[in-house]
Structures are given as structure tokens and as C-alpha cells.
């Protein structure tokens, strides 16, 4: 939701980034204020997932220009784990499997690490167990997931629920959800979207990276951005998503080109 006096959480200015020597982000601009929900859409290869990974600090991506301010500090001065502790959360498109490490152990370590950073109490295994079970109800998750290895053998939908569970535990200021809807059936989509909606409040912000508009039937964005060739070429309200669904992406590119010519 858009609030009048909300503060700027994320300010992305002229961001350039490359992977394996190929420039993917070419002058990305975005401002996100607390309380807002943004959707970033665009065709395959437009740089949506790259943008998400660059913000989280994936080591394979190299920032070659521009700057990003997060909650009043320069994001790129922070190591990936420091960004996470400061409140940047990435919901992975393909959550990573970690054989041999119990989900409960992993979740508790992550939770306690972030709690410690915020000067709050850490939980012992018993306390945490009660706490996490409450959170799991939100996502209609079976408590069996706690005893299994992190994401190992989880179905696509189970992995995505486990991501949102982590978001619920860590209470990030900025959650970037990368294609959280992909691979979800309609029931799972409803549950995951319901979880995200409950977690959204006036002090945090959510950036949804998505291909399709169907997620946006459940989570209403305040802004919809269209990315192409490494930058945002159009921004609108949630009705833009419906228009994209109906007309595809090509017209946006053509329109942007025409605008560029007109202003030249």
C-alpha cells in the first residue's frame, strides 16, 4: 500500500551489472518506499532475476556501475550475509538443497543470527520449535518439514512455501521474491500469496519478480514495472499487469522506442 509519509527503503540509481563478462543490467532505476508492493515484469532475459541476485549479493554477478541505497546505507558496502542481517531477503526462484542439514536447525540458526543482529533474544531449540510451528500454520505446512534436510526432496511448491516460511521468521524490511509463483499449482499459489499478504505491513516492502500476472490476482501491487534489456522501460499501476497479460510485451518496447525518438 502507498503511504503518505513513508520513507525510502531502496533507491537504485543507474545500476549496471554483468555476469561472466556480459552486461545484463544497463542503467536500472527503482525507488521503493516502506509499505509498498512492487511487481517487476518483463520477458525472459530482460534482467529481472539478475536484478534480484545483485541486490542480495550473489558472488557470480559483478556490479560495474551505479549505486544502491538500502535503508539509508550503501548496499554494496555490505557482504551478502550482512545484507541479510540488515533486512534484505531474497526468495529464491530455485531454492537450494542442503543435504544432511535439518531444516529446523537451519531455520533456527538463520533466525537467531538475525535476532542477534537486532539485539533481540535468541531462542533455544524447544522455544524455537513452538515458534516455528505457529509460523508454519500460516503456510499450511506439515511440521514434518522441520526434520527433513533443507529443501532436499521437496516438491517445487514445498520449496516455495519453505521460502515464505523463512520470510515469516526473518521479518525482512525488503523482501524480493524471485518468481515465487513459478511451479505452483493454484492451491499452493493461494496459500503462498496469502502468507505474503499477511506479512506485508507499513514498515516493510515487497518486490515481486514475476513472469505472469496470475500472482497479481492474489497480491495487489502498488506499482508494476516492465523490464527490458536490463532496465525498466515502463511503470504503471496494477492495471498495467492486466494490459500486459492481454497484449504481451512487444508494444511496451515499441512505445518506449517511440518515446525515446520523440524526446531526442
Amino acid at each position: 500500500m502507498i503511504y503518505q509519509d513513508s520513507k525510502t527503503l531502496l533507491a537504485v540509481r543507474d545500476l549496471h551489472a554483468s555476469v561472466n563478462g556480459t552486461e545484463i543490467l544497463k542503467g536500472m532505476e527503482l525507488t521503493v518506499r516502506s509499505g509498498e508492493v512492487h511487481a517487476i515484469m518483463g520477458p525472459n532475459g530482460s534482467g529481472k532475476s539478475t536484478f534480484a541476485k545483485v541486490l542480495a549479493g550473489h558472488p557470480a554477478y559483478v556490479v560495474t556501475g551505479g549505486e544502491v541505497e538500502f535503508d539509508g546505507r550503501s548496499l554494496f558496502e555490505l557482504a551478502p550475509e550482512a545484507r541479510a542481517r540488515a533486512g534484505v531477503f531474497l526468495g529464491f526462484q530455485y531454492p537450494i538443497e542442503i543435504p544432511g542439514v535439518a531444516n529446523s536447525q537451519f531455520l533456527r540458526l538463520a533466525y537467531n543470527t538475525v535476532q542477534a543482529e537486532r539485539g533481540k533474544d535468541e531462542l533455544d531449540p524447544l522455544e524455537f520449535d513452538d515458534f516455528v510451528r505457529e509460523k508454519m500454520k500460516l503456510l499450511e505446512m506439515n511440521p514434518d518439514f522441520l526434520g527433513r534436510s533443507v529443501n532436499e526432496g521437496f516438491s517445487g511448491g514445498e520449496k516455495k512455501r519453505n521460502e515464505i516460511l523463512q520470510m515469516a521468521l526473518l521479518e525482512p524490511k525488503l523482501a524480493i521474491l524471485d518468481e515465487t509463483d513459478s511451479g505452483l499449482d493454484i492451491d499452493a499459489l493461494r496459500i503462498v500469496a496469502g502468507g505474503v499478504n499477511q506479512l506485508s505491513n507499513k514498515d516493510n516492502a515487497i518486490v515481486l519478480v514475476t513472469h505472469y500476472q496470475r500472482l497479481l490476482n492474489y497480491i495487489a501491487p502498488d506499482y508494476v514495472h516492465v523490464m527490458e534489456a536490463g532496465r525498466i522501460i515502463k511503470t504503471g499501476g496494477k492495471e498495467l499487469a492486466l494490459e500486459l497479460e492481454a497484449r504481451g510485451y512487444d508494444w511496451v518496447g515499441a512505445e518506449a522506442e517511440a518515446n525515446a525518438r520523440a524526446s531526442a
Binding site: 549479493g57 542442503i98 538463520a110 526473518l170
Partner: peptide
């Protein structure tokens, strides 16, 4: 894997130790 741990606030040493012990 290490990036996944890092994205949840867990540093590389702790991550490796957790994986190896598991």
C-alpha cells in the same frame, strides 16, 4: 549453497561447518 546460507544471514564458516557436520 554458501550464497543461500549467506542470504539467510549465516556466514561461510558456519555454513561449511553445518554442512560437514550434517
Amino acid at each position: 549453497q554458501l550464497f543461500y546460507f549467506a542470504q539467510r544471514g549465516i556466514g561461510a564458516e558456519e555454513a561449511v561447518s553445518m554442512i560437514i557436520n550434517g
